[in-house]
């Protein structure tokens, strides 16, 4: 079949909402864009374990500690589902990791901020996982089968992450004056970076139109950001803490909250590698990889030896 008719058939499937599977023909650019998007997402899950890992041993109770452990373990799982989905597009896991370590591949800018107090565990679960859910739920219908299926599993597990975070915030807000202050301080520091998680404005984001056409993005960045603000404002009210934005106001006419201008300079700066924790995060990943090399080698050597013994016995 010639390229033109292959392309027609691909587009027809996309239009009819029929999933594209690994062995199906796909445009080279679709494959490349997916590899970038899925690996970036996988890296975010893995790097996202780091800010919270810091607090596992410092959790205020066994209940909180068990939840934090379970959440961080889930994020590792999410990374694995996504790396596997990405590999169905013909890339090797090791190459994906190399790109993360060299800085060639990006991950969500939010994880370059430090977790200074226990309240940050609450704010992250509530806001960061909340924003991630906003982003991810529509991707359960992504046009690429393995990606969509991975997202279904991820989304099922995410809702506990957000709820445990909100519960932490609620407990602090019902606690002493000092605890409530801690919760407010965490909200102050995580609010704007959370809004940045949705990416540049629609005007500034170059790939949106093509990605929407391909069904690997279902809503624009600004649409998702608005949804997030609309959903989160009433939750902050319930907690009794205030979102650090003077321009945040209900707009009767639009039926949405208006909100202030995001500091895009900060966003692009963090993406470029100049956030407070970029270096620390990548170093942690590289160290984990390098220090684990002997385990991988030993396991591979053991597997080889075992299969030899088996062969000789046969």
């Amino acid at each position: 079949m010639d390229i033109k008719s292959l392309e027609d058939r691909f587009n027809e499937k996309i239009d009819k909402d029929i999933r594209i599977e690994p062995k199906d023909w796909m445009p080279e650019n679709y494959r490349k864009t997916l590899i970038r998007q899925i690996s970036q997402h996988a890296h975010s899950e893995i790097v996202g374990m780091l800010p919270e890992a810091n607090w596992i041993s410092r959790a205020p109770s066994l209940r909180r500690k068990a939840a934090a452990l379970a959440k961080v373990q889930d994020e590792a799982g999410h990374g694995l589902y996504l790396y596997s989905a990405c590999e169905t597009l013909g890339v090797e896991r090791d190459d994906l990791l190399k790109d993360l370590h060299s800085g060639k591949a990006k991950y969500s800018s939010i994880f370059n901020y430090p977790t200074l107090t226990w309240a940050d565990m609450g704010a992250i679960g509530w806001l960061v996982d909340g924003a991630a859910i906003m982003n991810q739920v529509p991707l359960c219908r992504a046009s690429y089968g393995p990606y969509a299926r991975a997202m279904v599993r991820v989304c099922k597990e995410e809702s506990f992450h957000q709820r445990q975070g909100f519960e932490i915030m609620l407990t602090l807000c019902k606690g002493s004056e000092e605890q409530k202050k801690m919760a407010q301080d965490a909200l102050n520091r995580w609010w704007w970076p959370s809004l940045m998680m949705f990416g540049p404005t629609d005007e500034a984001s170059t790939h949106t139109e093509q990605s929407m056409r391909w069904g690997i993005k279902r809503f624009t960045n600004d649409e998702l950001r608005q949804k997030f603000v609309d959903a989160t404002k009433p939750q902050a009210d319930l907690l009794g803490i205030s979102i650090p934005d003077e321009d945040l106001k209900w707009n009767e006419e639009r039926g949405h909250y208006d909100f202030g201008e995001i500091n895009w300079e900060e966003f692009f700066n963090v993406i470029k590698g100049n956030g407070p924790c970029n270096k620390q995060r990548i170093d942690a990943r590289k160290n984990a990889y390098d220090n684990g090399a002997w385990v991988r080698d030993a396991a591979a050597a053991y597997a080889e030896k075992k299969s030899k013994v088996k062969q000789e016995a046969a």
Binding site: S84, R93, R296, A300, A303
Partner: peptide, 10 residues
Amino acid sequence: GSLHAADEEM
């Protein structure tokens, strides 16, 4: 889904 492992046990 799928995953990487050195051998069947792992």
